[in-house]
Design a protein around this nucleic acid. Structure first.
Length: 204
DNA sequence: TCTACGATCTTT
DNA sequence: AAGATCGTAGAT
């Protein structure tokens, strides 16, 4: 019997958003019997990021993003898909990391059943697919992932290399933010959405 | 109240 | 290339 993995502490999320995003790659999301390794993320930065939901200030929807680091921010997109974000930086600053893709570690059968029998990257690559595979919905919005509960983030296997490129689906943002390479992914993982849209290897 | 529009995915 | 599907935000 091994001890259960230790969840990341709030301090792990309290740093600058893009740096936290980079460190979240390779970490594990633990949701009951299902464990996945994060392979793709996007940083929504603060305060100068016109793609960020918080760019024009606090609203009822984005309020969880101003909460303490390690808070889950879950919202519905296109009336259909749930998007899972993890809040970064100190409370009061609206910055978060969108979790866009992951690869399975445990609970393959549960994932497949939630994804209509799919077992390949189609089951976990893309933020809506990931949320569906983990059964994530608005019930988790505003909850901490640092305390025992329905979702945890734990240390995993860090990536050897990272690639990056512009974030997906934010053409409405100002050009400087639309084009900024704030989407990061584990190089060599097949469990990544839009694999053709990366522009750089390991910018840091 | 009314309207427009998504940090997407699926099917055509 | 476009429909699904609905909460949010900004305008009226």
């Amino acid at each position: 019997m091994t001890a259960p993995p230790q969840p990341l502490a709030p301090e792990a999320f309290a740093g600058e958003c893009l740096a936290v995003a980079r460190r979240l790659l390779g970490c594990h999301l633990v949701r009951g019997e299902v464990v996945v390794r994060i392979t793709e993320v996007e940083a929504y930065r603060w305060p100068d990021d016109s793609a960020n939901h918080c760019f024009r200030g606090r609203t009822p929807r984005n309020a969880p993003m101003f909460g303490p680091p390690g808070t889950a921010y879950v919202y519905r997109c296109y009336g259909v898909h749930q998007m899972l974000n993890l809040v970064t930086q100190p409370a009061g600053e609206g910055a978060a990391v969108l979790i866009r893709a992951a690869e399975p570690v445990a609970g393959h059968g549960i994932i497949a059943s939630r994804r209509g029998g799919r077992t390949g990257p189609d089951s976990l690559a893309g933020p809506g697919r990931l949320a569906a595979a983990l059964a994530i919905d608005g019930a988790l919005n505003g909850r901490s992932v640092c305390a025992p509960g329905e979702l945890q983030v734990c240390a995993g296997r860090p990536p050897e290399r990272v690639r990056c490129g512009p974030r997906v689906g934010i053409d409405y943002a100002e050009p400087a933010h639309r084009d900024a390479p704030w989407r990061l992914a584990v190089t060599d993982s097949a469990w990544v959405s839009h694999p053709a849209r990366f522009t750089h290897e390991e910018q840091r």
